[in-house]
């Protein structure tokens, strides 16, 4: 599903963020990406979301060569993935319901579809009672569940979670990862960037470690449909 072939990324200021980076992630996998800050994790995600282009090398996601995507194709490419942010990225003056519905409306779904789908997804993350609350009335864990619901709402084939537990207390962190695990069990590929080793240890999934822009350890694909 995701393939990095000898990817180099050097920023304009000379920072070498990724060096000869190659990686293959199959459909339906759950992958932890670990590494200290500045190791190149963020660059990896930026390249995946096609916010940045590699300096050289090729990235292929679900059959699409990202380097050939045009600006106007980007929205449609991004609709195939759901993104969960460390800082939640909820819109403060919108209710929980509207924050999730926003992601549907933005891609032009009808109000009817929104009314049907949002309560269902809020139910999945256990937040139906909080639908009318505003983000500031929720705990960090609850806010991240809203973020998760928003990432899930358009049925993406891939979930990218960028340190989703970074601003959540430990007990809630476990719950969040458990939810991602459950989402993965239903067939969605999950990519989670984290530096919390305790969490990584608890869930026995594939672990990829990056250091100084290079892949230093890979526990190997756990599901390989192409094998």
């Amino acid at each position: 599903m995701i393939e990095f072939r000898n990817v180099y990324k050097t920023y304009d200021n000379g920072t070498k963020a990724l060096r000869d980076f190659s990686l293959r992630i199959n459909e339906g996998e759950f992958v932890f990406i670990v590494g200290s800050s500045g190791s190149g994790k963020s660059t990896l995600l930026k390249l995946l979301m096609r916010e940045e282009l590699p300096s050289s090398g090729e990235i292929i996601v679900a059959g699409r060569r990202l380097s050939t995507l045009r600006h106007k194709d980007l929205p449609f490419y991004r609709r195939t993935m759901g993104i969960v942010f460390q800082d939640f990225r909820l819109i403060p003056n919108m209710t929980v319901f509207d924050n999730v519905a926003f992601a549907m409306r933005v891609i032009g779904m009808s109000s009817k579809a929104v009314r049907k789908k949002v309560p269902y997804v809020l139910g999945l993350v256990g937040l139906n009672e909080k639908a009318r609350c505003y983000p500031k009335e929720l705990s960090g864990g609850e806010q991240q569940r809203v973020g998760l619901a928003r990432a899930l709402i358009n049925n993406p084939a891939l979930i990218i979670a960028d340190e989703p537990t970074g601003n959540v207390d430990p007990r809630m962190s476990f719950e969040i990862v458990d939810m991602l695990n459950e989402i993965n069990r239903r067939g969605t590929t999950v990519l989670m960037v984290t530096h919390e080793h305790s969490l990584v240890k608890k869930f026995h999934r594939r672990i990829i470690e990056i250091q100084n822009g290079e892949l230093v350890a890979d526990s190997g694909p756990e599901v390989d449909y192409y094998a």
């Binding site: 980007l74 929205p75 449609f76 991004r78 609709r79 819109i91 926003f102 992601a103 933005v106 891609i107």
Partner: peptide
Amino acid sequence: KLEIGIMKSVGATDWF
């Protein structure tokens, strides 16, 4: 900016 970033991340077109 936050709102625009979220819109982009979920795949809103420029015109939207």
